[in-house]
Simulated scan of single mutants.
Amino acid sequence: MKPTRMRATVVSAVLATVLAAAAAGVGTVQAQAQGQAAVPPADHNCLDPEGTNVNTFLGISERIIGPPACREAFVGEQWVRTFPSWGTAASGDHARYPRGYTPALFNPMDDFLSKFLGVRIVQDIGTAQEKSYTFGPEVIRRIAEFDGLPFAYFGSPPLSSLSAGTHTTTVFMRLSAEHCDGLGRRRAENCLPGGELAYTGDTPVRFFPRNA
C-alpha cells in the first residue's frame, strides 16, 4: 500500500485550517461535503487510489473513514478513523538530522515509536456537538516498508456511529518529545514537535440512514 506521508510543513498548514474552522464554524465545509457525498457501498472495503484494500492491509473489519474515497458510512455502524502514515529513514547509519537534534534511539523509526503516545480524535470540532476521544499507541496498526523506507500505518479502535448528516473528524497526534525522520535537515519538513499537534485537517464525513 502506497503511504500517504504527512510532513511537518503540511501539519503547520493543517493547524491553521483547524483554528480557522473552529473560529468560523464548519457549516460551509459541511454543506460542501454534503453536496459531494455519495451513498456508501454495502461492503466495508475501502480502496486507496492505487486500488489496495485498506481494510485487508490494516486488518480492519469495520467501515474505514479517512482516505478521500472512504468518507461515508451508514447510521448505526461502527467505523475506524485512519490517517496519513509516518515514514522515516531506513536506519540511523545514513540518517540526516537538523542541527542540534539528537534522536533517543539509533534507528529513526524506533525513535518515533518510542516517542509516540497516541492520538486525540475530535468529532465536529468547534461546534456544540464536539466530542473528543483519546487513544494510545494501539492506533499503530502496521509497520511496513515502501521503497525501502519503513512507514507506520494508523487506525483507531472502532468508534460509535454519528447521526445522519455531515460531520467533521480531526486527528491530533501526541509525542513525548521532538522526533525527526532522518530524511533531511529541515525541521519544518522533517520533524514533529513534542506535545500535541494537529495531524490532519477537519475531514468532512457523512452518515446516511439505512434506507438511503
Results as ranks from 00 to 15, higher is better:
L19T: 08
H44Q: 09
V14T: 02
N53V: 14
T17A: 09
T28F: 05
L47R: 14
A128M: 08
A20T: 06
L162W: 06
P157S: 07
G194P: 00
I60H: 10
T203E: 12
F172N: 03
L197I: 11
R174S: 15
Q34F: 10
T9M: 05
P193K: 03
A212M: 06
N55T: 07
N55W: 05
P204C: 05
T169L: 14
P158V: 06
A128S: 13
L183C: 08
M109F: 02
G182Y: 00
A31T: 10
G92S: 10
L47K: 15
A33R: 06
G136S: 08
G148H: 10
T28V: 13
S163T: 12
Y153T: 02
L197H: 00
T169H: 09
A164S: 15
P157H: 05
A128C: 01
L192C: 08
A21H: 00
F146W: 15
A20W: 04
C70K: 09
K2Y: 12
P137F: 00
V18H: 05
V29E: 06
P98S: 11
Q123T: 11
A188T: 14
T17I: 07
G87W: 01
G100P: 05
E62C: 12
F74V: 13
H179P: 05
A8N: 09
L105Y: 02
I140N: 05
V205E: 04
D93H: 09
E77F: 12
D181S: 06
I60W: 09
T28L: 12
A198H: 03
D110Q: 08
E72G: 12
A144V: 00
A69Y: 10
G76W: 13
A8W: 00
G155L: 06
P204S: 03
H44D: 04
E50Q: 15
A144Q: 12
P137R: 09
Y97M: 02
R185V: 11
D124L: 10
S91N: 11
R174Y: 01
P84D: 14
